[in-house]
């Protein structure tokens, strides 16, 4: 048993060591409580639905969401809009389809099986419309940033006047959480920007939190299943480990050597 402690010590050491080595930039992000953190974490449905609203009304004019489909909005463990609501959302977008019998592309209302409509035709068009900067696709954005949700949440609230001595070019803004502090996205959120249907007060902080929650879900749509399954798997493994441990003791008791 002593050796097992040593093994686990070794594992923990490697883990800590790895986390340290990855934390290259040390910025203090703004703190908030995330309902999906921890082994039993779940998404806050209402926050996801509000977050979708913020994405739809604010972010989606520049940022694509290309790996998400409208059907995902109904999916368990997500915002869980009703099927009728999601159909209405899908139908509010025009989707390019075709070619039809005449060989022409045509527009039709979106269906559940369609992917989220992109704000720009392609990356070049997106750059051209945004002063050369490509607004990154948002589907897995949370996983693509070292700071994860805390980083996104902070960035949305991190706009400040540049400190003395920092000059900014046209179309460049100062954000204290951005890598290098210079960002080409202007401050998007202001109090009361959207009107939440559930009556929640749309403060900047609230919107930042809601949309970040939504982005966490788009990046990890199976997070709730993963947490649930993980708990079962680990409990199961512990039970089996205990059983095997006693079986091992029984078997080794036939000879005089300890295990």
């Amino acid at each position: 048993m002593k050796n097992l402690f040593r093994i686990s010590f070794f594992v923990i050491f490697i883990l800590i060591f790895n986390i340290n080595s990855n934390a290259a930039d040390k910025v203090e992000y703004l703190k908030t409580e995330w309902s999906f953190k921890g082994p039993f974490g779940k998404f806050d449905r209402a926050a996801l639905q509000r977050g979708y609203q913020v994405y739809n009304e604010v972010c989606s004019s520049c940022h694509s969401m290309k790996y998400l489909s409208y059907r995902n909005l109904v999916q368990r463990g997500g915002p869980e809009f009703s099927e009728a609501q999601a159909k209405a959302i899908a139908a509010s977008f025009e989707v390019k389809d075709g070619p039809n019998a005449d060989g022409e592309m045509f527009m039709r209302p979106g269906r559940l099986s369609d992917k989220f409509v992109m704000p720009y035709e392609n990356e070049k068009a997106a750059q051209a419309a945004n002063g050369g900067a490509y607004p990154p696709d948002m589907t897995v954005l949370v996983k693509a940033r070292g700071g994860g949700v805390d980083y996104i949440y902070s960035l949305l609230q991190g706009y400040e006047d540049p400190p003395a001595g920092v000059t900014l070019d046209d179309g460049v803004y100062y954000n204290k959480f951005m890598y290098g502090n210079k960002i080409k996205m202007s401050n998007q959120l202001s109090d009361g920007l959207v009107e939440y249907s559930d009556g929640t007060d749309a403060t900047v902080e609230q919107m930042a939190k809601d949309v970040t929650t939504f982005l966490m879900w788009t990046a990890e749509p199976h997070l709730e299943t993963r947490h649930r399954m993980g708990f079962k798997a680990i409990v199961y493994l512990i039970i089996l480990t205990v059983l095997v441990y006693f079986s091992m003791k029984k078997i080794w008791s036939r000879i005089e050597t300890k295990v």
Partner: peptide, 10 residues
């Protein structure tokens, strides 16, 4: 496997 599962699920 318990360590492994911890990484995979959490």
């Amino acid at each position: 496997m318990i360590v492994f599962a911890f990484f995979v699920f959490y």
